[in-house]
Nucleic acid binder design. Structure first.
Length: 571
RNA sequence: GGUCCUAUGGUCAAGCGGUUAAGACACCGCCCUUUCACGGCGGUAACCCGGGUUCGAUUCCCGGUAGGAUCACCA
Protein backbone atom coordinates (compact mmCIF):
# COMPACT_ATOMS: atom_id res chain seq x y z
CA UNK A 1 0.00 0.00 0.00
CA UNK A 2 1.31 3.39 -0.99
CA UNK A 3 0.39 5.55 1.99
CA UNK A 4 1.43 8.77 0.34
CA UNK A 5 -0.97 8.08 -2.45
CA UNK A 6 -3.69 7.24 0.04
CA UNK A 7 -3.07 10.48 1.93
CA UNK A 8 -3.47 12.46 -1.28
CA UNK A 9 -6.64 10.58 -2.14
CA UNK A 10 -8.14 11.32 1.26
CA UNK A 11 -6.94 14.88 1.70
CA UNK A 12 -6.28 16.37 -1.70
CA UNK A 13 -6.86 19.90 -0.46
CA UNK A 14 -4.60 19.80 2.52
CA UNK A 15 -1.30 21.34 1.54
CA UNK A 16 0.12 22.44 4.85
CA UNK A 17 2.18 19.96 6.83
CA UNK A 18 2.58 19.57 10.57
CA UNK A 19 5.92 21.29 10.22
CA UNK A 20 4.16 24.35 8.82
CA UNK A 21 1.95 24.53 11.87
CA UNK A 22 4.83 23.98 14.24
CA UNK A 23 6.44 27.02 12.67
CA UNK A 24 3.22 28.98 12.88
CA UNK A 25 2.79 28.27 16.57
CA UNK A 26 6.24 28.45 18.12
CA UNK A 27 6.78 27.64 21.77
CA UNK A 28 5.63 30.27 24.25
CA UNK A 29 8.31 32.38 25.87
CA UNK A 30 6.81 32.25 29.33
CA UNK A 31 6.37 28.49 29.20
CA UNK A 32 9.95 28.07 28.08
CA UNK A 33 10.92 29.88 31.25
CA UNK A 34 8.83 27.73 33.49
CA UNK A 35 5.42 29.38 33.68
CA UNK A 36 2.24 27.30 33.46
CA UNK A 37 -0.05 27.38 30.49
CA UNK A 38 -3.56 26.19 31.22
CA UNK A 39 -6.80 26.23 29.42
CA UNK A 40 -10.47 25.77 29.89
CA UNK A 41 -12.10 23.76 27.14
CA UNK A 42 -15.82 23.81 27.64
CA UNK A 43 -18.29 22.61 25.09
CA UNK A 44 -20.75 25.39 24.38
CA UNK A 45 -23.86 23.74 25.73
CA UNK A 46 -24.86 26.86 27.58
CA UNK A 47 -24.79 25.14 30.90
CA UNK A 48 -21.95 26.09 33.15
CA UNK A 49 -21.82 24.39 36.48
CA UNK A 50 -19.95 24.16 39.72
CA UNK A 51 -17.67 21.50 38.28
CA UNK A 52 -16.61 23.87 35.53
CA UNK A 53 -15.92 26.55 38.07
CA UNK A 54 -13.99 24.13 40.21
CA UNK A 55 -11.78 23.13 37.30
CA UNK A 56 -11.50 26.66 35.97
CA UNK A 57 -10.34 27.78 39.34
CA UNK A 58 -7.52 25.26 39.34
CA UNK A 59 -6.51 26.32 35.85
CA UNK A 60 -6.61 29.96 36.75
CA UNK A 61 -4.59 29.57 39.91
CA UNK A 62 -2.00 27.36 38.28
CA UNK A 63 -1.43 29.82 35.46
CA UNK A 64 -1.57 33.05 37.39
CA UNK A 65 0.37 31.82 40.34
CA UNK A 66 3.23 30.49 38.27
CA UNK A 67 6.07 32.75 37.37
CA UNK A 68 8.55 32.35 34.58
CA UNK A 69 12.18 32.93 35.43
CA UNK A 70 12.00 36.23 33.56
CA UNK A 71 9.17 37.37 35.79
CA UNK A 72 6.24 37.02 33.42
CA UNK A 73 3.22 35.05 34.55
CA UNK A 74 1.55 32.05 33.05
CA UNK A 75 -1.27 32.06 30.57
CA UNK A 76 -4.84 30.91 31.01
CA UNK A 77 -6.86 30.70 27.84
CA UNK A 78 -10.33 29.77 26.71
CA UNK A 79 -10.82 27.31 23.92
CA UNK A 80 -14.29 26.38 22.82
CA UNK A 81 -14.63 22.69 22.17
CA UNK A 82 -17.45 22.71 19.70
CA UNK A 83 -16.58 19.66 17.66
CA UNK A 84 -20.04 18.30 18.27
CA UNK A 85 -22.30 20.59 16.27
CA UNK A 86 -25.41 19.13 17.87
CA UNK A 87 -24.54 20.58 21.23
CA UNK A 88 -24.01 24.19 20.34
CA UNK A 89 -26.30 26.62 22.12
CA UNK A 90 -26.57 30.24 21.10
CA UNK A 91 -24.94 32.67 23.51
CA UNK A 92 -23.13 29.91 25.36
CA UNK A 93 -19.73 31.54 25.09
CA UNK A 94 -21.08 34.72 26.66
CA UNK A 95 -22.56 32.66 29.46
CA UNK A 96 -19.23 30.98 30.10
CA UNK A 97 -17.22 34.16 30.15
CA UNK A 98 -19.76 36.09 32.21
CA UNK A 99 -20.40 33.35 34.72
CA UNK A 100 -16.74 32.83 35.39
CA UNK A 101 -16.15 36.57 35.35
CA UNK A 102 -18.68 36.88 38.16
CA UNK A 103 -16.33 34.77 40.21
CA UNK A 104 -13.39 36.86 39.14
CA UNK A 105 -11.93 34.26 36.84
CA UNK A 106 -10.56 35.95 33.77
CA UNK A 107 -8.89 34.62 30.68
CA UNK A 108 -5.69 36.01 29.23
CA UNK A 109 -6.30 34.70 25.79
CA UNK A 110 -8.71 32.86 23.55
CA UNK A 111 -12.37 33.10 22.70
CA UNK A 112 -13.76 36.46 23.75
CA UNK A 113 -17.05 38.26 24.23
CA UNK A 114 -16.96 40.38 21.11
CA UNK A 115 -16.37 37.32 18.97
CA UNK A 116 -12.79 38.34 18.27
CA UNK A 117 -10.31 35.86 19.63
CA UNK A 118 -7.20 37.24 21.21
CA UNK A 119 -3.82 35.58 21.22
CA UNK A 120 -1.42 34.08 18.72
CA UNK A 121 -2.43 30.47 18.95
CA UNK A 122 -5.90 30.62 17.47
CA UNK A 123 -8.37 30.01 16.19
CA UNK A 124 -9.76 29.13 19.58
CA UNK A 125 -12.88 27.46 18.33
CA UNK A 126 -12.23 23.86 17.44
CA UNK A 127 -14.83 24.07 14.71
CA UNK A 128 -12.57 26.56 12.94
CA UNK A 129 -9.47 24.40 13.16
CA UNK A 130 -10.49 21.75 10.66
CA UNK A 131 -7.56 22.16 8.26
CA UNK A 132 -5.09 21.98 11.11
CA UNK A 133 -6.40 18.67 12.37
CA UNK A 134 -6.60 17.31 8.87
CA UNK A 135 -3.00 18.16 8.17
CA UNK A 136 -1.97 16.04 11.13
CA UNK A 137 -4.33 13.25 10.16
CA UNK A 138 -2.89 13.31 6.67
CA UNK A 139 0.55 12.92 8.14
CA UNK A 140 -0.58 9.95 10.18
CA UNK A 141 -2.05 8.37 7.05
CA UNK A 142 1.20 8.98 5.25
CA UNK A 143 3.05 7.13 7.96
CA UNK A 144 0.55 4.29 7.89
CA UNK A 145 -0.61 5.04 11.42
CA UNK A 146 -4.19 5.84 10.57
CA UNK A 147 -6.63 4.57 8.03
CA UNK A 148 -10.09 5.18 6.62
CA UNK A 149 -12.86 2.99 7.90
CA UNK A 150 -16.16 2.47 6.09
CA UNK A 151 -17.99 0.54 8.77
CA UNK A 152 -21.60 1.63 8.99
CA UNK A 153 -23.60 2.06 12.14
CA UNK A 154 -25.18 -1.31 11.49
CA UNK A 155 -21.80 -2.96 11.08
CA UNK A 156 -20.67 -1.44 14.34
CA UNK A 157 -23.80 -2.56 16.12
CA UNK A 158 -23.35 -6.10 14.84
CA UNK A 159 -19.76 -6.22 16.02
CA UNK A 160 -20.76 -4.88 19.40
CA UNK A 161 -23.47 -7.48 19.71
CA UNK A 162 -21.09 -10.28 18.89
CA UNK A 163 -18.56 -8.97 21.40
CA UNK A 164 -21.14 -8.68 24.12
CA UNK A 165 -22.33 -12.20 23.43
CA UNK A 166 -18.75 -13.44 23.72
CA UNK A 167 -18.13 -11.27 26.80
CA UNK A 168 -15.30 -9.54 25.03
CA UNK A 169 -14.25 -5.94 25.24
CA UNK A 170 -16.28 -3.91 22.82
CA UNK A 171 -14.81 -1.69 20.15
CA UNK A 172 -12.68 -1.82 17.07
CA UNK A 173 -9.40 -3.51 17.88
CA UNK A 174 -7.42 -6.63 17.07
CA UNK A 175 -9.25 -8.92 14.74
CA UNK A 176 -12.24 -6.61 14.60
CA UNK A 177 -10.08 -3.95 13.05
CA UNK A 178 -8.43 -6.20 10.50
CA UNK A 179 -11.01 -5.89 7.79
CA UNK A 180 -10.84 -2.11 7.68
CA UNK A 181 -7.12 -1.97 8.22
CA UNK A 182 -6.48 -4.23 5.28
CA UNK A 183 -8.58 -2.52 2.69
CA UNK A 184 -6.66 -2.12 -0.54
CA UNK A 185 -6.12 1.23 -2.16
CA UNK A 186 -8.50 0.24 -4.92
CA UNK A 187 -11.25 -0.70 -2.51
CA UNK A 188 -10.88 2.57 -0.67
CA UNK A 189 -10.85 4.51 -3.89
CA UNK A 190 -14.03 2.88 -5.16
CA UNK A 191 -15.77 3.30 -1.81
CA UNK A 192 -15.02 6.97 -1.92
CA UNK A 193 -16.06 7.25 -5.52
CA UNK A 194 -19.33 5.60 -4.51
CA UNK A 195 -19.76 8.34 -1.92
CA UNK A 196 -19.64 6.04 1.07
CA UNK A 197 -19.11 7.94 4.31
CA UNK A 198 -16.08 7.02 6.34
CA UNK A 199 -14.11 7.95 9.40
CA UNK A 200 -10.38 7.95 10.03
CA UNK A 201 -9.23 5.57 12.70
CA UNK A 202 -5.96 5.44 14.54
CA UNK A 203 -4.01 2.30 13.76
CA UNK A 204 -3.24 1.40 17.32
CA UNK A 205 0.10 -0.18 18.02
CA UNK A 206 2.80 -0.49 20.60
CA UNK A 207 4.41 2.87 21.26
CA UNK A 208 6.79 1.82 23.98
CA UNK A 209 9.80 2.63 21.84
CA UNK A 210 8.27 5.37 19.74
CA UNK A 211 9.46 8.29 21.78
CA UNK A 212 12.76 8.12 23.64
CA UNK A 213 12.04 11.33 25.59
CA UNK A 214 8.70 10.10 26.72
CA UNK A 215 7.37 10.81 30.21
CA UNK A 216 5.44 7.59 29.90
CA UNK A 217 6.77 4.41 31.40
CA UNK A 218 5.84 1.02 30.08
CA UNK A 219 5.57 -2.21 31.96
CA UNK A 220 4.42 -5.67 31.08
CA UNK A 221 2.02 -7.58 33.27
CA UNK A 222 0.97 -11.04 32.09
CA UNK A 223 1.57 -10.12 28.51
CA UNK A 224 -0.37 -6.86 28.67
CA UNK A 225 1.45 -3.62 28.22
CA UNK A 226 0.72 -1.08 30.94
CA UNK A 227 1.46 2.57 30.65
CA UNK A 228 1.97 4.80 33.61
CA UNK A 229 2.28 8.52 33.98
CA UNK A 230 2.54 10.89 36.90
CA UNK A 231 -0.66 12.81 37.42
CA UNK A 232 -0.39 16.23 39.03
CA UNK A 233 -3.07 15.36 41.53
CA UNK A 234 -3.02 11.61 41.84
CA UNK A 235 0.61 10.78 41.45
CA UNK A 236 1.37 7.63 39.52
CA UNK A 237 -1.51 6.21 37.56
CA UNK A 238 -1.19 3.02 35.55
CA UNK A 239 -3.49 1.30 33.13
CA UNK A 240 -3.39 -0.97 30.13
CA UNK A 241 -2.11 0.67 26.98
CA UNK A 242 -4.67 1.53 24.38
CA UNK A 243 -5.38 -1.09 21.75
CA UNK A 244 -8.49 0.41 20.23
CA UNK A 245 -8.49 1.82 16.76
CA UNK A 246 -10.38 4.86 17.96
CA UNK A 247 -11.82 7.26 15.46
CA UNK A 248 -9.86 10.45 15.26
CA UNK A 249 -11.69 12.12 12.42
CA UNK A 250 -15.45 11.86 12.14
CA UNK A 251 -17.29 11.41 8.85
CA UNK A 252 -17.93 15.14 8.74
CA UNK A 253 -14.21 15.87 8.77
CA UNK A 254 -14.26 17.15 12.35
CA UNK A 255 -11.99 15.44 14.85
CA UNK A 256 -13.14 13.67 17.99
CA UNK A 257 -12.30 15.15 21.36
CA UNK A 258 -9.31 12.85 21.70
CA UNK A 259 -7.59 14.04 18.60
CA UNK A 260 -8.51 17.69 19.00
CA UNK A 261 -7.21 17.67 22.56
CA UNK A 262 -3.85 16.28 21.55
CA UNK A 263 -3.35 18.58 18.58
CA UNK A 264 -4.64 21.70 20.31
CA UNK A 265 -2.85 21.32 23.56
CA UNK A 266 0.35 20.63 21.72
CA UNK A 267 0.04 23.50 19.28
CA UNK A 268 -1.17 25.89 21.95
CA UNK A 269 1.62 24.67 24.23
CA UNK A 270 -0.54 23.83 27.20
CA UNK A 271 1.66 22.68 30.05
CA UNK A 272 -1.04 21.51 32.46
CA UNK A 273 -4.24 19.82 31.41
CA UNK A 274 -6.79 20.10 34.19
CA UNK A 275 -9.89 18.04 33.61
CA UNK A 276 -12.40 15.90 35.40
CA UNK A 277 -11.77 12.39 36.55
CA UNK A 278 -14.15 11.13 33.89
CA UNK A 279 -11.30 11.57 31.42
CA UNK A 280 -8.92 9.30 33.22
CA UNK A 281 -10.08 6.25 31.33
CA UNK A 282 -9.32 7.76 27.96
CA UNK A 283 -5.82 8.68 28.99
CA UNK A 284 -4.26 5.68 27.18
CA UNK A 285 -5.73 6.94 23.93
CA UNK A 286 -4.25 10.35 24.47
CA UNK A 287 -0.92 8.91 25.46
CA UNK A 288 -0.75 6.83 22.31
CA UNK A 289 -1.62 9.86 20.23
CA UNK A 290 1.00 12.03 21.89
CA UNK A 291 3.62 9.35 21.46
CA UNK A 292 2.79 8.66 17.81
CA UNK A 293 2.83 12.31 16.96
CA UNK A 294 6.09 12.79 18.84
CA UNK A 295 4.64 15.48 21.11
CA UNK A 296 5.66 16.09 24.65
CA UNK A 297 3.02 15.01 27.15
CA UNK A 298 1.50 17.80 29.25
CA UNK A 299 1.08 17.34 32.99
CA UNK A 300 -2.35 15.90 33.51
CA UNK A 301 -4.33 16.92 36.56
CA UNK A 302 -7.44 14.83 36.91
CA UNK A 303 -9.73 16.44 39.43
CA UNK A 304 -12.15 14.55 41.61
CA UNK A 305 -15.81 14.59 40.79
CA UNK A 306 -18.06 16.66 43.02
CA UNK A 307 -20.53 14.47 44.85
CA UNK A 308 -23.60 14.74 46.97
CA UNK A 309 -25.73 12.40 49.01
CA UNK A 310 -28.72 11.28 47.06
CA UNK A 311 -31.89 12.03 48.98
CA UNK A 312 -33.56 8.87 47.82
CA UNK A 313 -30.85 6.24 48.06
CA UNK A 314 -28.65 7.79 50.71
CA UNK A 315 -25.58 7.04 48.63
CA UNK A 316 -22.89 9.33 47.37
CA UNK A 317 -23.29 10.21 43.76
CA UNK A 318 -22.00 12.61 41.18
CA UNK A 319 -23.81 15.92 41.20
CA UNK A 320 -26.25 15.84 38.37
CA UNK A 321 -27.39 18.87 36.52
CA UNK A 322 -30.89 17.54 36.18
CA UNK A 323 -31.50 16.76 39.82
CA UNK A 324 -29.33 19.19 41.72
CA UNK A 325 -30.02 22.88 41.42
CA UNK A 326 -26.98 23.69 43.52
CA UNK A 327 -24.78 22.42 40.74
CA UNK A 328 -25.76 25.29 38.53
CA UNK A 329 -23.75 28.44 38.99
CA UNK A 330 -27.00 30.31 38.61
CA UNK A 331 -28.18 28.84 41.86
CA UNK A 332 -25.54 30.77 43.78
CA UNK A 333 -26.36 33.95 41.98
CA UNK A 334 -30.07 33.53 42.63
CA UNK A 335 -29.53 32.81 46.28
CA UNK A 336 -27.22 35.77 46.32
CA UNK A 337 -24.05 34.16 47.54
CA UNK A 338 -21.13 36.48 47.26
CA UNK A 339 -18.62 35.25 44.67
CA UNK A 340 -15.86 35.59 47.23
CA UNK A 341 -17.65 33.17 49.53
CA UNK A 342 -18.11 30.59 46.83
CA UNK A 343 -14.47 30.87 45.86
CA UNK A 344 -13.38 30.63 49.43
CA UNK A 345 -15.45 27.50 49.90
CA UNK A 346 -14.21 25.95 46.71
CA UNK A 347 -10.66 26.50 47.85
CA UNK A 348 -11.31 24.69 51.10
CA UNK A 349 -12.36 21.59 49.25
CA UNK A 350 -9.69 22.10 46.62
CA UNK A 351 -6.66 22.36 48.86
CA UNK A 352 -6.65 20.58 52.18
CA UNK A 353 -4.28 23.04 53.79
CA UNK A 354 -6.29 26.09 52.82
CA UNK A 355 -8.36 26.41 55.96
CA UNK A 356 -5.25 26.30 58.04
CA UNK A 357 -3.68 29.02 55.96
CA UNK A 358 -6.80 31.14 56.22
CA UNK A 359 -6.82 30.80 59.98
CA UNK A 360 -3.31 32.17 60.06
CA UNK A 361 -3.97 34.90 57.53
CA UNK A 362 -7.53 36.02 58.13
CA UNK A 363 -7.18 39.23 56.17
CA UNK A 364 -4.97 38.11 53.33
CA UNK A 365 -6.23 38.20 49.80
CA UNK A 366 -7.32 34.82 48.58
CA UNK A 367 -4.83 35.01 45.72
CA UNK A 368 -1.92 35.07 48.12
CA UNK A 369 -2.53 31.48 49.03
CA UNK A 370 -0.04 29.16 47.41
CA UNK A 371 -2.19 26.67 45.63
CA UNK A 372 -0.70 23.29 44.81
CA UNK A 373 -2.12 20.36 42.92
CA UNK A 374 -0.54 17.80 45.18
CA UNK A 375 -2.65 19.05 48.07
CA UNK A 376 -5.73 18.22 46.10
CA UNK A 377 -7.76 15.23 47.14
CA UNK A 378 -8.26 12.54 44.58
CA UNK A 379 -11.45 11.30 46.18
CA UNK A 380 -14.73 12.89 45.28
CA UNK A 381 -15.61 15.64 47.70
CA UNK A 382 -19.12 15.88 48.98
CA UNK A 383 -20.62 19.25 48.41
CA UNK A 384 -21.52 20.71 51.79
CA UNK A 385 -23.93 23.60 51.72
CA UNK A 386 -23.65 24.01 55.48
CA UNK A 387 -19.99 24.65 55.24
CA UNK A 388 -20.50 27.12 52.45
CA UNK A 389 -22.89 29.07 54.63
CA UNK A 390 -20.48 29.09 57.51
CA UNK A 391 -17.67 30.33 55.34
CA UNK A 392 -19.93 32.88 53.78
CA UNK A 393 -20.62 34.44 57.18
CA UNK A 394 -16.95 35.09 57.70
CA UNK A 395 -16.38 36.34 54.20
CA UNK A 396 -19.28 38.77 54.37
CA UNK A 397 -17.96 40.16 57.62
CA UNK A 398 -14.87 41.23 55.75
CA UNK A 399 -16.81 43.17 53.17
CA UNK A 400 -17.61 46.82 53.97
CA UNK A 401 -21.30 47.58 54.49
CA UNK A 402 -21.45 49.98 51.55
CA UNK A 403 -20.10 47.33 49.23
CA UNK A 404 -22.52 44.82 50.60
CA UNK A 405 -25.39 47.25 50.11
CA UNK A 406 -24.45 47.66 46.47
CA UNK A 407 -24.22 43.91 46.13
CA UNK A 408 -27.69 43.53 47.63
CA UNK A 409 -29.14 46.05 45.24
CA UNK A 410 -27.57 44.32 42.27
CA UNK A 411 -28.96 41.06 43.40
CA UNK A 412 -32.44 42.46 44.00
CA UNK A 413 -32.54 44.12 40.63
CA UNK A 414 -31.98 40.79 39.00
CA UNK A 415 -33.75 38.37 41.29
CA UNK A 416 -36.18 40.32 43.43
CA UNK A 417 -37.18 43.32 41.33
CA UNK A 418 -40.22 44.23 43.42
CA UNK A 419 -37.93 44.90 46.38
CA UNK A 420 -35.20 46.63 44.43
CA UNK A 421 -36.59 50.17 44.72
CA UNK A 422 -36.49 49.88 48.49
CA UNK A 423 -32.84 48.97 48.41
CA UNK A 424 -31.97 51.96 46.31
CA UNK A 425 -31.71 53.90 49.52
CA UNK A 426 -28.16 52.70 49.96
CA UNK A 427 -27.43 54.84 52.97
CA UNK A 428 -30.28 53.30 54.93
CA UNK A 429 -29.32 49.81 53.76
CA UNK A 430 -25.69 50.29 54.68
CA UNK A 431 -26.65 51.30 58.21
CA UNK A 432 -28.79 48.21 58.51
CA UNK A 433 -26.08 45.91 57.22
CA UNK A 434 -23.52 47.47 59.47
CA UNK A 435 -25.48 46.68 62.62
CA UNK A 436 -23.41 44.92 65.21
CA UNK A 437 -20.46 44.44 62.95
CA UNK A 438 -18.05 46.71 64.76
CA UNK A 439 -18.30 45.35 68.27
CA UNK A 440 -15.45 43.38 69.73
CA UNK A 441 -17.58 40.38 68.95
CA UNK A 442 -19.07 41.16 65.57
CA UNK A 443 -22.26 39.49 64.51
CA UNK A 444 -21.99 36.85 61.86
CA UNK A 445 -25.47 36.31 60.65
CA UNK A 446 -25.30 37.54 57.11
CA UNK A 447 -24.99 34.64 54.69
CA UNK A 448 -26.38 35.37 51.26
CA UNK A 449 -28.55 38.06 49.70
CA UNK A 450 -31.79 36.15 49.83
CA UNK A 451 -31.30 35.26 53.46
CA UNK A 452 -30.10 38.76 54.30
CA UNK A 453 -33.14 40.35 52.78
CA UNK A 454 -35.35 38.12 54.80
CA UNK A 455 -33.31 38.84 57.88
CA UNK A 456 -33.64 42.60 57.56
CA UNK A 457 -37.07 42.80 55.97
CA UNK A 458 -38.66 44.39 59.05
CA UNK A 459 -36.75 47.55 58.28
CA UNK A 460 -39.14 48.05 55.41
CA UNK A 461 -42.80 48.71 56.17
CA UNK A 462 -43.80 46.89 53.02
CA UNK A 463 -42.35 43.68 54.40
CA UNK A 464 -42.98 44.19 58.09
CA UNK A 465 -45.27 41.64 59.71
CA UNK A 466 -45.72 40.30 63.21
CA UNK A 467 -44.29 36.83 62.81
CA UNK A 468 -44.13 35.58 66.36
CA UNK A 469 -46.28 35.35 69.43
CA UNK A 470 -45.39 36.96 72.75
CA UNK A 471 -43.69 34.69 75.30
CA UNK A 472 -46.05 32.59 77.41
CA UNK A 473 -44.76 34.19 80.61
CA UNK A 474 -46.38 37.43 79.59
CA UNK A 475 -50.16 37.80 79.75
CA UNK A 476 -52.01 39.81 77.14
CA UNK A 477 -52.82 42.51 79.69
CA UNK A 478 -49.18 42.73 80.74
CA UNK A 479 -48.10 42.97 77.14
CA UNK A 480 -50.47 45.82 76.54
CA UNK A 481 -49.29 47.50 79.73
CA UNK A 482 -45.64 47.08 78.78
CA UNK A 483 -46.14 48.59 75.38
CA UNK A 484 -48.30 51.42 76.62
CA UNK A 485 -45.77 52.47 79.21
CA UNK A 486 -42.94 51.97 76.78
CA UNK A 487 -44.60 54.31 74.35
CA UNK A 488 -45.34 56.87 77.04
CA UNK A 489 -41.79 57.03 78.27
CA UNK A 490 -40.14 56.61 74.88
CA UNK A 491 -37.63 59.30 74.04
CA UNK A 492 -35.86 58.80 70.76
CA UNK A 493 -32.87 60.81 71.90
CA UNK A 494 -32.16 58.54 74.87
CA UNK A 495 -28.84 56.85 74.69
CA UNK A 496 -28.69 53.13 75.11
CA UNK A 497 -28.32 53.07 78.88
CA UNK A 498 -31.06 55.64 79.46
CA UNK A 499 -33.29 53.65 77.18
CA UNK A 500 -32.60 50.40 78.94
CA UNK A 501 -33.07 51.97 82.36
CA UNK A 502 -36.68 52.72 81.42
CA UNK A 503 -37.24 49.11 80.45
CA UNK A 504 -35.90 48.00 83.81
CA UNK A 505 -38.35 50.30 85.51
CA UNK A 506 -41.28 48.84 83.61
CA UNK A 507 -39.96 45.37 84.29
CA UNK A 508 -39.75 45.88 88.03
CA UNK A 509 -43.10 47.70 88.27
CA UNK A 510 -44.96 44.85 86.63
CA UNK A 511 -43.43 42.16 88.79
CA UNK A 512 -40.82 40.79 86.48
CA UNK A 513 -37.20 40.11 87.42
CA UNK A 514 -34.74 42.78 86.36
CA UNK A 515 -31.97 40.23 86.40
CA UNK A 516 -32.71 37.08 84.42
CA UNK A 517 -30.66 35.13 86.93
CA UNK A 518 -33.04 35.99 89.74
CA UNK A 519 -35.92 34.62 87.76
CA UNK A 520 -33.95 31.52 86.99
CA UNK A 521 -33.16 30.94 90.63
CA UNK A 522 -36.59 31.82 92.01
CA UNK A 523 -39.10 31.36 89.24
CA UNK A 524 -41.93 31.39 91.75
CA UNK A 525 -41.22 34.98 92.82
CA UNK A 526 -41.54 36.57 89.39
CA UNK A 527 -43.85 36.43 86.40
CA UNK A 528 -40.82 36.38 84.16
CA UNK A 529 -37.70 38.39 83.51
CA UNK A 530 -36.53 41.45 81.70
CA UNK A 531 -35.79 39.16 78.80
CA UNK A 532 -39.49 38.46 78.36
CA UNK A 533 -40.39 42.10 78.64
CA UNK A 534 -37.81 42.95 76.03
CA UNK A 535 -39.14 40.28 73.77
CA UNK A 536 -42.57 41.87 73.80
CA UNK A 537 -41.05 45.13 72.62
CA UNK A 538 -38.94 43.32 70.11
CA UNK A 539 -41.96 41.64 68.60
CA UNK A 540 -43.87 44.89 68.48
CA UNK A 541 -41.12 46.76 66.70
CA UNK A 542 -39.46 44.03 64.64
CA UNK A 543 -42.19 41.46 64.41
CA UNK A 544 -39.83 38.78 65.65
CA UNK A 545 -37.87 37.80 68.72
CA UNK A 546 -34.51 37.47 67.02
CA UNK A 547 -32.64 40.53 65.92
CA UNK A 548 -29.62 42.65 66.70
CA UNK A 549 -29.73 45.23 69.44
CA UNK A 550 -33.17 46.85 69.81
CA UNK A 551 -31.95 50.32 70.65
CA UNK A 552 -29.65 50.40 67.63
CA UNK A 553 -32.42 49.20 65.38
CA UNK A 554 -34.78 51.86 66.62
CA UNK A 555 -32.22 54.52 65.90
CA UNK A 556 -32.14 53.38 62.31
CA UNK A 557 -35.90 52.91 61.99
CA UNK A 558 -36.56 56.41 63.24
CA UNK A 559 -38.91 57.63 65.94
CA UNK A 560 -41.99 57.82 63.80
CA UNK A 561 -41.85 54.25 62.65
CA UNK A 562 -41.18 52.96 66.13
CA UNK A 563 -44.12 54.84 67.61
CA UNK A 564 -46.55 53.93 64.89
CA UNK A 565 -45.70 50.23 65.03
CA UNK A 566 -46.25 50.11 68.77
CA UNK A 567 -49.43 52.15 68.79
CA UNK A 568 -50.78 50.02 65.99
CA UNK A 569 -50.35 46.96 68.13
CA UNK A 570 -51.93 48.50 71.18
CA UNK A 571 -54.87 49.41 68.99
C1' G B 1 -18.96 -7.63 32.94
C1' G B 2 -13.76 -5.46 31.69
C1' U B 3 -10.67 -1.47 33.24
C1' C B 4 -9.42 2.47 36.49
C1' C B 5 -9.99 5.57 40.87
C1' U B 6 -11.22 5.93 46.01
C1' A B 7 -11.94 4.18 51.32
C1' U B 8 -10.22 8.00 58.86
C1' G B 9 -16.38 10.60 63.15
C1' G B 10 -22.87 12.75 60.03
C1' U B 11 -19.70 16.03 56.38
C1' C B 12 -14.74 18.10 54.78
C1' A B 13 -10.16 16.53 56.44
C1' A B 14 -4.73 16.04 58.97
C1' G B 15 -1.83 11.69 59.36
C1' C B 16 2.58 9.29 55.43
C1' G B 17 5.40 2.28 60.68
C1' G B 18 5.20 3.63 67.29
C1' U B 19 0.17 9.71 68.16
C1' U B 20 -4.05 10.27 74.41
C1' A B 21 -5.71 9.56 65.96
C1' A B 22 -5.23 17.01 64.84
C1' G B 23 -8.56 20.71 63.02
C1' A B 24 -13.13 22.78 60.64
C1' C B 25 -18.60 22.36 59.78
C1' A B 26 -22.93 20.24 61.90
C1' C B 27 -24.91 18.39 66.65
C1' C B 28 -25.37 18.53 72.27
C1' G B 29 -24.26 20.91 77.17
C1' C B 30 -22.50 25.03 80.11
C1' C B 31 -20.88 30.23 80.48
C1' C B 32 -21.37 35.37 78.69
C1' U B 33 -25.71 38.25 77.13
C1' U B 34 -32.22 42.43 77.85
C1' U B 35 -33.53 38.19 72.85
C1' C B 36 -30.98 36.13 68.96
C1' A B 37 -26.35 36.00 67.03
C1' C B 38 -21.19 36.30 68.07
C1' G B 39 -17.64 34.58 71.47
C1' G B 40 -15.52 31.25 75.37
C1' C B 41 -15.31 26.37 77.62
C1' G B 42 -16.62 21.33 77.40
C1' G B 43 -18.93 16.91 75.12
C1' U B 44 -20.87 12.75 71.75
C1' A B 45 -18.61 10.61 67.52
C1' A B 46 -13.94 7.65 63.11
C1' C B 47 -9.22 4.45 61.00
C1' C B 48 -14.55 -0.90 55.79
C1' C B 49 -13.38 -6.44 56.43
C1' G B 50 -9.80 -10.56 56.08
C1' G B 51 -4.94 -12.12 55.35
C1' G B 52 0.20 -11.09 55.17
C1' U B 53 5.28 -7.92 55.92
C1' U B 54 7.05 -6.12 60.70
C1' C B 55 9.04 -6.15 67.42
C1' G B 56 4.82 -2.98 66.05
C1' A B 57 0.19 -1.37 61.41
C1' U B 58 -4.81 3.69 60.33
C1' U B 59 -0.20 4.08 57.64
C1' C B 60 3.21 -0.84 53.32
C1' C B 61 1.55 -5.45 50.21
C1' C B 62 -2.33 -8.95 48.61
C1' G B 63 -7.36 -10.35 48.55
C1' G B 64 -12.53 -9.17 49.50
C1' U B 65 -16.41 -5.52 50.24
C1' A B 66 -18.49 -0.80 49.28
C1' G B 67 -18.86 3.76 46.57
C1' G B 68 -17.51 6.28 42.24
C1' A B 69 -15.73 6.77 37.07
C1' U B 70 -15.51 4.83 32.22
C1' C B 71 -16.31 1.47 28.11
C1' A B 72 -19.68 6.60 21.14
C1' C B 73 -18.47 9.21 14.53
C1' C B 74 -20.47 13.30 23.09
C1' A B 75 -17.35 16.25 25.22
Amino acid sequence: MDYNKLAELLFPDIQKTPADYEALYPPRENAEHGACITRLGPSPTGFIHLGNLYGAFVDERLAHQSKASDGTGGTFFLRIEDTDDKRYVEGAVETIINSLGFFDIKFDEGAALDGHDSGNYGPYYQSQRGPIYQAFVKELIRKGQAYPCFLTEDDLAAIRQEQEANKETTGIYGKYAEKSRNLSYEEIESNIAAGKPYVIRLKSSDTSTANPDSKVSYEDHDGVTYISIVDGIRGKVAMPANDQDVVILKANGIPTYHFAHVIDDHLMHTTHVVRGEEWLMSLPIHVELFEKLGFELPVYCHTAVLMKIDDETGNKRKLSKRKDPELSLDYYRKEGYHPKAVKEYLLTILNSNYEEWRAEHPDADIDEFQFTTDKMSSAGALFDLNKLMDISKDVLLGIPAEELAAFMLNWAQEFKPQAAPLLENQEYLSKILDLGRHDKKPRKDLIHAKQIFDFISYFYDEYFTIEERIPEQVSDEDAREILTRYLETYDHSDDQSEWFEKIRTITADLGYAVKPKDYKKHPEEYKGSVAHVSTVIRIAVMGRSQSPDVWAIQQILGEERVRSRISQLIG
